[in-house]
């Protein structure tokens, strides 16, 4: 959830002013809150906690603030741009994504030093356990945007389409930015990248269908109006 925009960010990795990411981040948060309400229920106890999420191989960080009125995610230039977060999590983008999706065990990532944590550990554990409970699957979650369309998803469609359209080009940027250096060392990461590529290919092939049904749904919606 908190990290899902990391993936989105991967799609738009070319140096962008963080502020331009905000629509995508807002979209990701609303999507996660809708599809994974149980995750947010487990975060209830945290109230006003805030997290700095630092993909060490990206040129910017994320700030996750849980306080009311609703959890909000934003991009910040550097760690110093976020005022006294409750805790900070640092690791390579792929590690963060795999943690988010429950494909990697957080403790194992910590033991191997792939994940570094600082600050309020209770908040970190709560976040980790909540995220891990959720069965988050980014590809599935993003695809849900193109399912039977409801209001928020329809409004978001334009943003998402733009993101997916750039995906192929940006994937190469992702590789160049952080995968290439570790490629030789870590086959599993490259395998995971291939998974990502497959997912994206899959997305691309399904996009037109989704679009068609989206258009149809939009039309039906319009007709009802």
């Amino acid at each position: 959830m908190s990290l899902s925009p990391v993936l989105l960010a991967g799609f738009v990795l070319r140096p962008l002013p963080p502020v331009l990411l905000q629509p995508a981040l807002d979209l990701a948060m609303s999507l996660m809150r809708r599809r994974h309400s149980d995750v947010f229920e487990r975060l209830d106890t945290l109230e006003n906690a805030s997290f700095l999420i630092d993909p060490v191989d990206l040129p910017f960080c994320f700030a996750l603030r849980l306080g009311p009125p609703a959890p909000r995610l934003s991009a910040v230039g550097t760690a110093d741009d976020m005022e006294s977060p409750s805790a900070a999590l640092r690791g390579p983008l792929l590690v963060l994504i795999r943690l988010l999706e429950g494909r990697m065990d957080g403790d194992a990532a910590f033991f191997s030093r792939d994940l570094a944590v600082e600050g309020d550990m209770e908040a970190v554990l709560t976040l980790r356990n909540a995220v891990d409970s959720g069965g988050i699957d980014l590809a599935e979650d993003l695809l849900s945007l193109f399912g039977p369309l409801n209001g928020p998803a329809r409004r978001a469609l334009g943003v998402a389409e733009a993101l997916f359209a750039r995906a192929e080009r940006d994937l190469e940027t992702v590789r160049a930015a952080f995968v290439a250096p570790v490629e030789g060392r870590c086959d599993t990461q490259t395998a995971r990248l291939r998974d990502l590529e497959d997912n994206l290919a899959d997305l691309r092939t399904r996009m037109p269908r989704a679009n068609v049904s989206g258009t149809r749904a939009a039309k039906h919606g319009a007709a009802r109006l």
Binding site: R98, L99, G102, M104, D105, G106, D107, A108
Partner: peptide
């Protein structure tokens, strides 16, 4: 019980 799904599955 405190470990993630990935640990459990593996």
């Amino acid at each position: 019980r405190q470990r993630g799904r990935a640990y459990i599955a593996e």
